[in-house]
Design a binder for these strands. Structure first.
Lengths: 192, 192
DNA sequence: CTTACTCATCTAACGGTTAGATAGGCCGTG
DNA sequence: CACGGCCTATCTAACCGTTAGATGAGTAAG
């Protein structure tokens, strides 16, 4: 019956979504030529406990696509007693792209639009009580916030990963404040 | 020389990214069977000024994939003096999926990881001054915040779109606060 | 008559993301 | 010794999200 559109996505796990992986990999290669496994390790270092966001395969897929696009060049290097490596190096076009990226100040501007649409759709179809949905979401977010704060404490003081976690915490707090606004809105709307 | 990996992405414009479009469309169809154009209009209503995020084609692509997956069924309806419509209706599997979605409280947990990695990579490769990058980004974010606040004022009081814009504003404020933390971090790191 | 807009749908192609396959070497346990 | 489990290292198929742009027929304005 094949009703599994999002089946491969069965575990949303902790989508600390990344996007723009291409540019990130290019920038890492700008420091020094590396093979995929190494790049991946460097990325994990920078991401700290949020490294789960990065699927190993993604690094290789992206590197291949970059090679096809002529932004990097690859060379296979054999080693004794170890799997071969494929060492990637920036091309001139790649270097240009990195500099463009560094100068680009566009920002994702992500809104919690998904949840918002959930409320609107649920209310319109009478499928669920918006106030209940907000309350449930609030509960989940509080748990996430606590987890992030715990993780931040575990990080050594002044680590890069700690900085990133601070960003996660600030966002979650903002989202919680927004949920309060949502609650007010839908409560008053029910009253009408 | 085909260096255009991200060429189609030339204008990042205003990526108010959505994701989980599938579930949103399903939920809208839960209220009543509709054709693509109508669903799109309903979505734009709910998103207000953020509707630019939605490319028309995306609705049709998604509906087609949902049909292939057996979550909706389609029926072509001709009309005089107008293009045909394709009316979509939820299947039982589709209805199940919507209810699952409503009960799911997972949250994107998006961190501004992209910018963070930009700083890390730029500093490591000595390609740019992190403090400068932060300053530039701050400037861009302040402009975005002002635009969002302006848009919020334009919205009629108590509109759904205004609620969503409030979320955007809160997030941008949180991101700005995080940028301050970043500035401190990279300044103190330079001192060392 | 031309210009431009609304209705309505579709396509090709890209980038992000994932689960899982592959294949060798290392190490400790029973 | 054999076995399981971990590390190195890469790749694939298949999704989903997203975009620019094509198509084609009405309708309204100038």
């Amino acid at each position: 019956m094949a009703q599994n559109v999002g089946a491969p996505n069965k575990e949303p796990s902790d989508g600390y979504q990344l996007r723009v992986v291409q540019e990130v990999l290019l920038a890492l290669l700008a420091k020094e030529a590396s093979h995929g496994y190494q790049v991946r390790a460097r990325l994990q270092l920078a991401l700290g406990p949020l490294a789960e966001a990065l699927n190993a395969g993604q690094v290789y897929v992206t590197l291949n696509r970059l090679e096809k696009a002529g932004l990097v060049s690859a060379e296979r290097v054999g080693q004794p007693d170890r799997p071969d490596r494929k060492v990637y190096e920036l091309t001139r076009a790649g270097r240009t792209r990195v500099l463009e990226w560094l100068g680009d100040t566009s920002w994702p501007k992500p809104a919690p639009a998904e949840f918002h649409l959930k409320l609107v759709a649920a209310a319109a179809a009478g499928l669920a009580d918006p106030e209940r949905l907000v309350a449930d979401q609030r509960h989940a977010l509080l748990a996430g916030l606590a987890a992030a704060q715990r993780a931040a404490l575990t990080e050594p003081d002044g680590s890069v990963a700690g900085l990133l976690l601070e960003g996660v915490v600030l966002r979650l707090e903002a989202d919680l404040r927004w949920l309060d606004t949502c609650a007010q809105y839908w409560t008053s709307r029910k009253a009408r």
